[in-house]
Every structure is written in C-alpha cells, then in structure tokens.
Design a protein around this nucleic acid. Structure first.
Length: 605
DNA sequence: TTAGGGTTAG
C-alpha cells in the first residue's frame, strides 16, 4: 500500500514538468529520493531516521534502495557493521553487490576474517563473485596475512576469467607482496598487458617491505623508463626508505628535489622520511635543518630525529630534542625510549642513560622490554662496565635473548675481557646461535690472547654447524650509483686502478707515521700476510675507488655491514687529512665523520 | 544503476 502511494506521488511530481513517464522511471525517482536521504546522513542518529523513512515509504523492498542503505551504513566513517548486518539479513535479494559491500565493510573495520567468511557464504548461496569482489577479498588475505587462502582466491579468479582486470591484478601483486611471495608477485606483474601507476606502486612497496632495497631503486628506474613517472608520494616514500637503507644520499637528494618541484606542501610522513634519509645517509646538518623547519612534528618525527642524533654520536643533543618533545606535550612510547637510550649509549652517557631508564617506567608507565635492556647492556658494555652489564642481565625479569648476549660479547671484545666474552659466547651457543659472527668474535678474542688451540676449536665448532662467515662489505656512492667492495676484492671491473690507488695511499700514509695495526688480523699468519690482509679491507678499497672517481675536495660516503676495525679507523682518519676529504662511514649502528685527521666518535664507539 | 587497486615513517 505504502509503495503504491509513493509511486503515485513521484508520478505526480514528474508529470508536472514532463510528459507522462513510464511506471519504471517513476519508480527510479523513489530510488533517487532514497539516495538523497542517505546522502544527507552524517551520523548514526540521522541514518536511523532515514532508515525509518525509507521503510515508511516502502522503499526497502526495492533492491537498489536496500543495497544503498546497507552500503551507507557499512562504509561510512560513522557507520556500524552490526547495524549493516541486521539490515543485510533482512534483505530478500542478495547478489554480488550486496556481498561485496559487506566484505568491504568488514575489511574497513579491520575484521578481515569476517570478510573471508562472507565470501564463503556468498559461494554457499550460489552468488557469483565479480571483478569487484576480488580487490576487497585480496586485501583481507594480504592483511591477515593468509597466503594459502590468497592462492585459493587466485585460482577462483582464473576460473572465473577475471585475471585480466587491472584492479584484480594490482590487488594480487599487493597480496603476494605482503605475504612475502615476491616471486609470484613479480610473475603477476610481468604477465600484465596493461599497467597503471598503482601496479608499479604495489610492486615497489612489496620490494621495500621485504627489504629488497636495490630492487626498489631498479624498479623506480624501470617505471620512469616506461613513462609512468609522476608525483606519487607513497612510491617516493618507499624509494626514500630504500635510499636510507643503502646510504644512497645523492639519489635521496634527487627524490627530495623532485618532491619540491612537483608536490606542494609535503605531508608529515614524507617529511619524516626525508629527514630519516638525510640522517641515516650521513647528512646530519640537512636532516636537522628539515626537522627544525617542520611546521607540525609528531612523535615519529621526534623519534627519527633522536635516533638519528644517537647514530651520529650526539647524545646530549638527542636528550635535548627529547626534552623538547615532552614540552610539546607529546607522550613518548617504548620506541622513542629505545632512541633515547641509544643516544646515551653512543655518547657514553651512562648516568643519563640510567636516569632515562628509570624515568621511562616511573614517569611514563612504560615497562622496559627486552629491547630496552639490550640498550642498557650496550650502554654499560661500551663504557667498559662489563660486570655491571652482566649483573643487569641476571636481574632481568625475562630470559635474555641472543641480542643481549651478543651485545655483551661485543663489549667484552672491545674491552678485552675474555672471561665475560666466554660467558656470553657460551650462552649464545646454548641458544643455538646460527650466526657465524658469534664464533668469529670469540675466536678472535682467543687469537688476541694467543690461545691458538681455542681458536681452532671454536672455528671447527663453527664449521661443524655448517656456518660460514658473512663477508664484510662496503658500499660507496659515486655518480648516483652504489659500488660494492668486499675484503680483498678483485671482482670490481676497475680493480686494477683501485689497487694502484691503494698503493699510492699507503705510500703517503707512511709519511704521516701510519703503521698497520696487525693485531687486528686475528689469524695465525706471518706479519707480511697480516699487512696484506689489512690493506685489502673493503673500506679501504671503497675509499680508493671514491678518491679516483670523485672530484677533489668532495665528501666520500661509505656504508658498511659490519663494525670497522681499529686499523681502518686510524687509516681513514689519516686519509681525511692527507687528501683533504670529509669521509663519512656508516656501520650497522652508527656514523663516523672523519675530518682533518679526527673522527666525530672521538674514538669512542 | 551503486563500488574496486597502490597510503607510504621510528
């Protein structure tokens, strides 16, 4: 009855302005009214009133109106999935649109498993999925992550012949990427006939999330070669992340330039990524300038800045920024405190570190995690307080992990405390450490103590576990390209000229009073062999390459995977004065800025 | 008839 009256009303409305309409078009006007009612809603109260009105007008029986009702309730920011479900359950006609809507609602609500259940119900009811079904469903699989379900879904897509839909393909790339299946992820991308920027974005983000940084940069090049280059902040953030990890400052700078030219008003994520890139690529000054100019800083921006200062050895400055953060009313979290403790650690601020550690719990209610204990062990260990570090480990409310023992082992090595080193190593081996470096450090400590039998025993132990030493490498950026050198490298195309340069460097170093610190070569070989091995360390090769291929006076930046040895440290200090170059070296934990014969770490690292 | 993919940082 109600529906008839509505039909009548709309018919009258139309017939005033237009020639008589067919009953079908008049019915559409009922739908239009429904849509306009729903569009006006901005909260659940208003929505409920519109819902009542729609029921009263008899529009709920119309599939289009009911569907829009569900969609509005399920997908609006102010909506409610419970309410949407109750409407959904009352509907007579359930097709793919209705199911797709419910799935989207569940995914939006982070209720991903419910989205998969909805898909299952869809199949059970014999409703055929369409091309709109899969992007949502794959997003759910990606988020869980549920690669097996994702692959089943992929099979359904092939069965239904939807594999050429670009939206479906992009979702597949993203799903496989997030599930760590980079091979299939690339295969889907390769098979695409037509790609969009989102396809590249999904692919680059997938590589970035798996730490495949070099591939990220290669793909960015491929993307621009295929003419897909446009200002896409999200892609550039992934690329900046790659630059950060690889230490590719020049490329990072060009991304910055591109952003300045093409994007007006950088958002806080892009700005923070830029700051992190500058800080971790060695350009502390530039990172600091950008940070100071930021209009709005959040907790993450402060966190990045504090950790950056820590890496550069500016502990006190890091603590100052931390105070500023608190003054701004920003509440620190556990990760900010990791940065703060690291800042203390790298600058040898033992008392300050202890104060912060206590303050974290007392003032901010943050229970120390194993990571914080790790920072404290590192702080004490670096400062030579090995016994205190060991005491702290024993007093922890949780079981110490390999990271902690490794930190103690490393400190024992630096401070020549073989007894503590043996304790740490024993615990590491008990935890079934699969890191060859743990065996190598202990073996090196025995070597330093001339205990060659123990050296042999440790090495045999290591080999019997099938472990081999990860080679140390140094990366150096020349003309926006990263060049990689390993120790005693002979594989670089310009190896010959590098060794020639090395010879010249050593000749000049002799005049500065340099003599190779052969105690750093921990093998039972003769002095000449030791000298030979020292001179071929990857950092020296990288510096030689940079001296040949960069203009006089320009800075040299190196990224290494391991801590540098004392000899490389002394050597680099002298090179900085002889060749008048600023040399920045980033290892796994921190930066060393070599200038005029001195290092920013003041030999504390 | 309705709608969908890539949202990035410590």
């Amino acid at each position: 009855m109600i529906r008839t009256s509505v039909l009548h009303q709309t018919h009258v409305l139309v017939s005033r302005e237009d020639p008589p309409q067919s009953p079908e078009l008049s019915f559409k006007l009922g739908e239009k009214e429904c849509v306009s009612l729903l569009k006006k809603c901005s909260n659940m109260e208003e929505f409920k009133q519109s819902h009542a009105r729609i029921l009263k007008l008899g529009l709920f029986g119309d599939s289009f109106c009911a569907s829009n009702l569900v969609a509005t309730c399920a997908l609006s920011d102010w909506g409610s999935m419970d309410y949407a479900c109750s409407i959904f359950r009352q509907m007579d006609e359930l097709g793919s649109f209705q199911f797709n809507t419910m799935m989207r609602g569940h995914v939006k609500d982070m209720n991903t498993e419910e989205a998969l259940i909805t898909y299952k119900e869809m199949a059970e009811r014999g409703v055929k999925p369409d091309n709109f079904t899969y992007p949502t469903l794959l997003k759910a699989c990606a988020r869980l992550p549920a690669v097996e379900e994702g692959m089943q879904v992929h099979a359904h897509i092939l069965k239904l012949g939807l594999e050429n839909d670009v939206f479906v393909q992009n979702s597949l790339i993203s799903m496989y990427g997030k599930c760590g299946e980079i091979g299939v992820c690339c295969a889907v991308f390769e098979q695409m006939n037509e790609r969009s920027v989102a396809s590249w974005s999904a692919l680059i983000t997938a590589h970035a999330s798996l730490g495949m940084w070099s591939d990220c940069l290669r793909l960015l090049g491929d993307m621009s070669n295929e003419g897909y280059w446009r200002a896409e902040e999200s892609i550039l953030v992934s690329v900046l992340s790659a630059c950060t990890h690889l230490g590719a400052l020049d490329l990072g700078r060009s991304v910055h330039g591109f952003l300045l030219r093409n994007v007006s008003g950088l958002n806080v994520i892009v700005e923070t990524s830029l700051i992190e890139m500058y800080l971790k690529c060695g350009s502390l000054y530039k990172g600091m300038c950008l940070f100071q100019k930021m209009a709005k800083k959040n907790k993450l921006s402060y966190s990045v800045m504090i950790s950056g200062l820590a890496m550069h050895g500016y502990g006190r400055e890091g603590l100052r920024i931390f105070t500023e953060m608190l003054e701004q009313g920003l509440e620190p979290d556990d990760i900010v405190y990791v940065g703060v403790l690291n800042a203390c650690s790298h600058a040898g601020l033992v008392q300050e570190g202890l104060q912060c550690f206590n303050r974290m719990k007392l003032e901010h209610g943050i229970e120390p995690t194993i990571q914080h204990y790790g920072c404290m062990v590192d702080l004490m260990g670096r400062a030579g307080k090995i016994d205190e570090a060991l005491e702290l480990i024993k007093s922890m409310p949780m079981e110490p992990n390999d990271v902690l023992w490794r930190s103690l082992l490393s400190a024992s090595k630096v401070h020549n405390n073989l007894q503590a080193g043996e304790i740490a190593a024993k615990q590491l081996f008990k935890l079934d450490s699969q890191k060859a470096s743990d065996y190598v450090v202990l073996s090196n400590m025995y070597a330093q103590a001339q205990r060659w039998e123990d050296v042999a025993k440790t090495r045999t132990n290591m080999f019997s576990k099938g472990l081999s030493q990860r080679p140390g490498f140094s990366l150096v950026e020349v003309k926006r390209k990263m060049h990689r050198f390993v120790s005693q490298d002979a594989g670089h195309p310009q190896s010959e000229s590098v060794y020639e340069m090395l010879y010249q460097m050593e000749w000049q170093l002799k005049f500065e009073g340099y003599s190779p610190d052969t105690t750093q070569v921990l093998c039972d070989v003769d002095e000449e062999e030791k000298k030979q091995r020292l001179s071929g360390h990857s950092q020296k090769l990288a510096i030689a390459y940079a001296l040949i291929h960069t203009s006089q006076g320009s800075p040299i930046r190196i990224v290494r995977n391991l801590r540098m040895c004392n000899d490389c440290h002394t050597y680099t200090k002298l090179i900085s004065i002889i060749f008048d170059r600023e040399i920045t070296v980033r290892d796994r934990h921190r930066f060393h800025h070599f200038k005029d014969g001195a290092c920013s770490c003041r030999d504390y690292w």
